[in-house]
C-alpha cells in the first residue's frame, strides 16, 4: 500500500501570553496513513488529537517535525495552500450545523471548494448533483438552507463538500459525536462505502471507541500529546498493552448490562498539566505498574510485531495482569446480533 501521509516526530507547542512557558500540545507524534486506509486517533480531550489534524491541514505551523504528503514535505501554511495541493486534503467538522453557512443554499455550499480550483459554473453544478446522489441527498435538498435539514442530513452535506474535490486524504474530526445513534450509524455506513468506492485515506479523530472499532484499520491511542500505543484495530481492541489504552477501553459503555469490562488495571489520580510535563513517562503518576525507571525517562517505542508499537517499559507485565484477551466489542456484537435476529 502506498503511503499517502507520513508524520514524523511532530511537535506543536503553544506559547502562553505573559509567560515563558508553553503548552506542549503535541509531543513527538509519528504515524503514517496509506491509501484507502483509516487511521483513528483516539484519546481524551486535550490529548492533542485535533491539533495533529490541524497541523496536517496546514491551519497551524508545527513547532517541529515533518509532515509529508506523497513524500513531499508539507505542514507550513503556504505549502498546503499551494495550487498543487488544493483539495487533496479535506476536512469534515464535528458540528454539522455550525460548519455550514446558514444563509447559503446547500448546493452552493457543496460546490464551493470547486470555485477555488477554478472550475466553471456548469461543471460545478453537474458535479454537485453527482456528489449529492453519492452521499444520499435529494435533488431538492440542494436548494434548501442548512436549517431545513436534520443533523444527519447536514453531516451528509459536510461529507459531500469534502469529497467533491476528489481528496486523497480526509481528516474527520469527530464527525459523528453530535448525532443521534441512528443518524450516526448511517453516516458511518456512508463513510465506509465512500472509502471503498473512492479509495480515500481517512484520519478519523474520535473519542467514540465503539465507532472507531468498526471503522478503523489501524488505531493510535493518544495521551497528553503523544501516541502511547498504535497498531491494527484488532490488536489494540483485543490485546491492548499500554495501561492507558486498557483504562480507556474499559470505560466504554456498551448497551448491554451483562457486559462490563471491569479491568484489573485502573488509572488513579490526575492528568498532569500539559504546561509542566513530567520528565519520564507521562502516565507514571497514574499508572499502577510504575517503577523508578518510568519516572526517570520516557520509554521508547517497543515494536511487538505487525506494526504494533507500545511506549511502555512494563507492557509485558501489563499483559500478564490483564487476562481479558477476549475482544469485548466483538462479544457485544455477537450478543446484539442474537437479540436482533431473535425478535424478527
Amino acid at each position: 500500500m502506498s503511503v499517502v501521509l507520513s508524520v514524523q516526530n511532530l511537535v506543536q507547542h503553544f506559547p502562553i501570553a505573559g509567560s515563558r512557558s508553553v503548552v506542549q500540545a503535541v509531543n513527538n507524534v509519528s504515524f503514517t496513513v496509506a491509501r484507502g486506509e483509516t487511521l483513528s486517533l483516539v484519546g481524551e480531550s486535550g490529548s492533542g488529537k485535533t491539533t495533529v489534524g490541524r497541523c496536517i491541514l496546514g491551519l497551524i505551523d508545527p513547532t517541529g517535525g515533518d509532515i509529508s504528503f506523497h513524500g513531499e514535505k508539507i505542514g507550513k501554511k503556504h505549502n498546503v495552500r499551494s495550487r498543487g495541493l488544493r483539495g487533496k486534503i479535506q476536512l469534515v467538522f464535528q458540528e454539522p450545523a455550525e460548519s455550514l453557512d446558514p444563509r447559503i443554499r446547500i448546493g452552493v455550499t457543496i460546490g464551493e471548494p470547486l470555485r477555488s480550483l477554478g472550475e466553471k459554473r456548469e461543471d460545478r453544478n453537474k458535479r454537485v448533483r453527482e456528489i449529492a446522489r453519492r452521499v444520499g441527498l435529494s435533488e431538492d435538498a440542494l436548494y434548501q438552507y442548512p436549517a431545513e435539514l436534520s443533523a444527519g442530513q447536514q453531516q451528509r452535506v459536510g461529507i459531500a463538500r469534502a469529497i467533491i474535490t476528489d481528496p486523497e486524504l480526509i481528516v474527520l474530526d469527530e464527525p459523528t459525536s453530535a448525532l443521534d445513534p441512528t443518524a450516526r450509524a448511517e453516516i458511518i455506513d456512508l463513510l465506509i462505502r465512500l472509502q471503498k468506492e473512492l479509495n480515500t485515506a481517512y484520519l478519523f479523530i474520535s473519542h467514540d471507541l465503539s465507532t472507531v472499532r468498526y471503522l478503523s484499520h489501524r488505531v493510535a491511542v493518544m495521551y497528553l500529546g503523544m501516541i502511547v500505543e498504535q497498531g491494527s484495530a484488532q490488536d489494540i481492541f483485543s490485546r491492548p498493552r499500554h495501561p492507558y489504552s486498557i483504562g480507556l477501553l474499559s470505560s466504554v459503555l456498551l448497551p448491554n448490562p451483562n457486559l462490563e469490562r471491569r479491568s484489573e488495571v485502573s488509572l488513579q489520580g490526575e492528568i498532569p498539566s500539559p504546561i509542566d510535563l513530567p520528565e519520564g513517562c507521562y502516565l507514571a503518576s497514574r499508572c499502577p505498574f510504575v517503577e523508578a525507571e518510568c519516572n526517570a525517562r520516557m520509554p521508547d517505542a517497543d515494536d511487538i510485531g505487525g506494526g504494533h508499537l507500545v511506549h511502555c517499559f512494563k507492557h509485558r507485565n501489563v499483559i500478564d495482569e490483564e487476562k481479558a484477551t477476549l475482544d469485548y466489542f466483538e462479544r457485544f456484537q455477537e450478543e446484539a446480533e442474537k437479540l436482533l435476529i431473535s425478535g424478527h
Binding site: 441512528t182 472499532r213 436482533l340
Partner: peptide, 19 residues
C-alpha cells in the same frame, strides 16, 4: 427500542431489519 439498539450493531443488514 429495538431500532435504537440496532444502531449499535455494526451489521447493516440486521440494522435494516428494524429500520
Amino acid at each position: 427500542s429495538v431500532m435504537l439498539l440496532s444502531a449499535f450493531s455494526h451489521n447493516p443488514k440486521l440494522r435494516g431489519l428494524w429500520t
